[in-house]
Computed example of a mutant assay.
Amino acid sequence: MPRIALLAATGLLLSACSNEEPVASVPAVDLHGRLEVDEQKTAERQAQGIEGQYYRRVLNIEGTDLSLDDFLNRYCPTETRDETCSKALRIKKIDDVAGATRFLPKGL
């Protein structure tokens, strides 16, 4: 019995010594956000002969505007199983093809 108690205490002490920074919890956010013209990307594409404007998705989180990329970098670690993060990653993959779009698949 003393060994079990010693092992439990050792485990608790080791877990308290973790050097990892806590990951910020993922806030509840509307992942559709709003679409803004990305002037830099639009200019790059027009220089290549591609007409039209390139849009980026901007999310409003607690009064702060963040691009979808910034949201993923800040709140979603690479190996997360959070539903909001997986939906955001799927939306990012769609947006990366030709810019942000209002028309997303059902469920996103």
Rank of each mutant, 00 (worst) to 15 (best):
E39C: 06
V29P: 01
S67W: 01
E44I: 10
R81T: 13
P2A: 09
I4P: 00
K92R: 13
N73D: 15
L66G: 02
G33H: 00
R74S: 04
L104H: 10
D38E: 04
S86D: 13
D38A: 08
D38P: 05
T78N: 12
A43K: 11
A43S: 06
T80K: 02
G63S: 03
I61Q: 01
P105H: 11
N19G: 08
T64H: 05
D96A: 15
M1S: 07
Y55R: 00
E79Q: 14
N19S: 08
K41T: 05
R81K: 14
C17A: 15
L108S: 09
A16G: 02
P27H: 05
L104R: 10
E79L: 15
C17R: 11
G63Y: 05
K106V: 13
P2Q: 12
L35S: 03
A16H: 03
T10V: 14
T42W: 03
A9K: 10
C17V: 02
C85S: 09
S67R: 05
V23T: 13
C76Q: 10
Q46A: 04
D70F: 00
A9W: 10
E51P: 01
L68V: 07
T80Y: 04
R74M: 04
S86N: 15
D82P: 02
D82C: 05
L31Q: 03
T78L: 13
T84L: 09
K41L: 15
G107S: 06
K87E: 09
R102N: 13
A16E: 12
E79A: 07
Q40F: 11
E79W: 14
L104I: 09
I4R: 07
G99P: 08
A8W: 09
Y75F: 14
L59W: 02
R56V: 02
Y55P: 01
I4T: 11
N60Q: 14
H32A: 07
L104T: 03
Y54K: 04
R57S: 01
E36V: 12
D95F: 10
A5M: 04
L31F: 10
E36M: 01
S15G: 08
Y75K: 02
E79P: 01
Y54H: 12
Y55E: 04
K41C: 09
I50P: 00
K106A: 13
R74T: 06
Y55H: 12
P27M: 03
N19W: 11
V23E: 07
D38I: 02
R81H: 14
L31K: 11
R81M: 14
A28D: 12
T101L: 08
G52A: 06
F103H: 09
E83M: 11
V58R: 00
G33W: 00
E21S: 06
A100T: 11
A98E: 12
D95I: 04
P2W: 10
A47D: 15
A28M: 01
L104S: 07
Q48E: 15
R81N: 14
M1V: 15
Y75N: 02
G33T: 07
A9H: 02
D30I: 08
G52T: 12
D30L: 04
R45G: 00
C17W: 10
D70P: 01
T84P: 05
T42Q: 07
C76I: 13
S25H: 06
A43G: 00
D30G: 08
S15I: 07
L72T: 06
G107Q: 13
T80L: 08
Q46G: 05
R57W: 00
K87N: 12
A100L: 03
G107F: 13
K92V: 00
L104P: 15
E36N: 02
R45Y: 05
Q40W: 09
